[in-house]
Design a protein around this nucleic acid. Structure first.
Lengths: 213, 213
DNA sequence: TAGATTGTTAATCGATTAACAATC
DNA sequence: TAGATTGTTAATCGATTAACAATC
């Protein structure tokens, strides 16, 4: 039974299901049961069935799930077929690395442009993505809007840039700065990729906490 | 009352507390109550007090918390003062971007070396970090071990490299590849930074799910 | 002292797991 | 048909929130 609200925990598991089903498909697996899928993912069969039931009924009693069909369903649920577009704000090291190496298309995104202020790179092309001057952001977005802005600007420019780009109609910000963004525009989603938080969590987990006791 | 097991949810919130307390400290704030802290973080006072109580008693009735002292306590809890070391495996675009831009020291880490197979960069230095040939990984780690390996190699090299480096005594892997690593060495922690998962979650959240209904 | 705020215990809420009738 | 496995309802578990006595 389709749910109208899906919890964040479920949403975060979808990409993993997708990735795993892709691997299974590539390996030639045609069908899989929730318990087999659960075993290979380190989850319970119950959880997988519950998760999927948020979106519809994709299995068949006595058979399980068709790997390819389920993968395609999950892709569709995640919006992979909606031809989302993205722009990169800040074509420094990280921005450049993402443009050159991250496969946006595999997540259903088309990278249409990058923006920077450095005269040395404005006007150039990274991969096949043109780098425009940040001053032209609003103008270019008014002509061709983008769904998501990849925020890879320096910390100090993060909030201002986020303000500009949300005002210009972007619906999501993929935030690689370590800044906690404040969004005034309603309905805009911020997805944080806080490297430092991640490394600190790892630091905690490898630390010797029992020194004293 | 100190807990011996701390839930993952709590651990993931610590870096955010730390960051926020740092900002407050920089802004000259000396003391703060759990309710004020909660308000500015978008959390309940209860949650903050519960979270902190996992590690000890850092507040004072009628007063609240000393911002600097609490920040330092949290830093210590996360292992920021343990002088952890890290190496980077794979000095391509992403590895290079991390070396040049990510402030490892702010998370308590010292970057001691990078490794790659590309003869064009082996022997060079990125920032102040020397790039060694991957063949010398075991030898160099046996002389000077590292706590964490930053895994920024190509997908196909991910599992083999993880195997090598865990065998060589690394205790944590900061995994930037999109591979689900299998770790045989006991006690090794993998912290995944799955860009694609993050972007897909964002894709889901900005998608029009009500098209049909 | 009076007011404020802690740490902790109890209550609630939500997410995960188990159980099972339905059915391929 | 018999066995397998689903989708869903119920039970359990864990995490968040509320309440409050202790006390600075």
């Amino acid at each position: 039974m389709k749910k109208d609200h899906v919890s964040n925990a479920v949403i975060r598991r979808l990409p993993r299901y997708f990735r795993h089903l892709n691997d299974l498909h590539d390996a030639g697996v045609v069908r899989i049961s929730s318990s087999a899928l659960g075993k290979s993912l380190g989850a319970t069969a119950s959880q997988i069935r519950q998760d999927l039931s948020c979106f519809g009924e994709f299995g068949q009693q006595g058979y399980g799930y068709n790997v390819e069909a389920l993968r395609d369903e999950i892709a569709d649920i995640m919006g992979l077929n909606e031809r989302h577009t993205a722009i990169v704000l800040g074509a420094g090291n990280l921005g450049r690395a993402l443009i050159e190496n991250f496969h946006f298309a595999r997540s259903g995104f088309t990278l249409t442009a990058a923006f920077d202020v450095d005269p040395a790179i404005v006007g150039t092309t990274i991969g096949s993505v043109p780098v425009h001057h940040a001053d032209t952001l609003e103008e270019l977005l008014s002509r061709g809007p983008a769904d998501v802005a990849v925020l890879t600007v320096p910390q100090r420019a993060a909030q201002v840039t986020a303000d500009r780009v949300t005002k210009a109609g972007v619906r999501g910000i993929w935030n690689f700065t370590n800044i906690e963004l404040t969004i005034t525009e309603p309905g805009v989603i911020v997805e944080d990729v806080h490297f430092a938080d991640s490394l600190l969590a790892l630091s905690y987990m490898i630390s010797d906490r029992d020194k004293g006791n």
